[in-house]
Design a protein around this nucleic acid. Sequence first.
DNA 1: GCAAAAGTTTGATCAGGATCAAAGATTCTG
DNA 2: CAGAATCTTTGATCCTGATCAAACTTTTGC
Lengths: 255, 255
Amino acid sequence: MSKTPTPSGGFGPSIQALDPWTPSAGRMRQLLTDDERARLAVMSTIVRFKKGEIIYQEGDRADAVFNLNSGIVTTYSKAPRGREHVVAFLLADDLFGLSAEGLYTNSTRALTAVTAYRLPVAALRSRLTKDAELEFHIMCKLCQELRQARHHAFLLSQRSAVTKLAMFLQLFEQLQIAKGEPASEIHLPMDRSDIGEYTGITLAAVSRGFRTLTIRGIIKVRDRHHVRIVDRSGFEKITGDPPQSPTQLVEAGRN
Amino acid sequence: MSKTPTPSGGFGPSIQALDPWTPSAGRMRQLLTDDERARLAVMSTIVRFKKGEIIYQEGDRADAVFNLNSGIVTTYSKAPRGREHVVAFLLADDLFGLSAEGLYTNSTRALTAVTAYRLPVAALRSRLTKDAELEFHIMCKLCQELRQARHHAFLLSQRSAVTKLAMFLQLFEQLQIAKGEPASEIHLPMDRSDIGEYTGITLAAVSRGFRTLTIRGIIKVRDRHHVRIVDRSGFEKITGDPPQSPTQLVEAGRN
DNA sequence: GCAAAAGTTTGATCAGGATCAAAGATTCTG
DNA sequence: CAGAATCTTTGATCCTGATCAAACTTTTGC
């Protein structure tokens, strides 16, 4: 340990600066190039998890990072009163395995059957040392995460359960669009209690929230995992969102 | 860009990996070395803001980044129903000015009289292109921000107003410790409504929350801006936090 | 294909906060 | 320093969502 990096701990968020780190419209979800992906792939092994299986737990020694290939994963942490707080839902191409002090900072569980690439931290680290391009892309991912985390906080700061729910649906709709999938119907792979733990409301409130939106003619629930927004303007009145364009790259920045 | 450091992975939605980006115990609040700071300083100008002054607003053209020198700044964004959502409080040495698509993503206001360095984005960008060290440190800051944003989300996911308030106090206490200031008394430079907007509860609820904690003998409120925790274990029972050590650097990573 | 398990809806009750409102403190400002 | 503007406390009322619990429904495992 020599001159260490030094970060700050401010509370405040510190870096709220910079800018060029915004994904280009076309590649919202894939921040790495195919090339980079391939180079990393040779250093990794494929791992599979069954639905419900725990991939790692908070506090476990963090010796590897994962790149989700297929399926859905949820990251969560323990909250008081035996509850769980869902930090995020991870989709294909997401990287996960964040750690601090060599230990994972939260737990992850496969929500569906999952396949992922498991990349030893040591390998990634040595690769990063020589690959500035890769490092830059990881920086982009960090910025993206930061934006997402703040959006999550914003969602949680809403007072009404229905608003939180609507914002949650909106989030998933946008994710789906970013993935290039048809968006006429929103696919929610997780169950009601996961939604509750993400939105900070109870299971029962989630259910009632869906009913309320249905009764008001805002959404139509096909089945447990499929919802369609039938009254767009009513929906936007609830989320408070006018149109809101997807993030886009403005300035290439590097090279 | 040559030898780069050793970041970590991405997550959640994307980067949730890697590790070494954890502040070293000693210099929690200063991510940049004095050297780097000096090099950036020559490219910046000093700006001053009076208490209550708006530094920039969401949507303004983002042509500069700021490094807070003295005073307290708050970042916020507009929420439905004319409310404001406080994203963070910024203290000395924090960088701010995050943007996307060339526009600031939120607004900032001086909570007290403020002095800051104003650094044109173009200058920073060109500097970053040649300075891997600096880039690494900025990466550290991003990781830190991400942790903070997630902590904020966690706080907001709590059901009880008193719990949120206690977690908020805990946060400020830790910040103060990180800054190397005596921590027997917590200094809260913002007013009650700012606290409410950060914790997602109303002004009135903040006030009642302080009273509740006082009545229960957990805290003692000296005045508007000074609180002391008098019953530590009772306090920790509320926040759900046992001891919780401050983040620390595990692996130097780079030369 | 049928039980058992898991997940979901719905009900009834209750408490914690939101809201609206007014009175008390503090801190500006001229 | 007095009056104004701001911030904070406290009150009264109402409503949303938490809780506890029971009836349904869908999925899973044999």
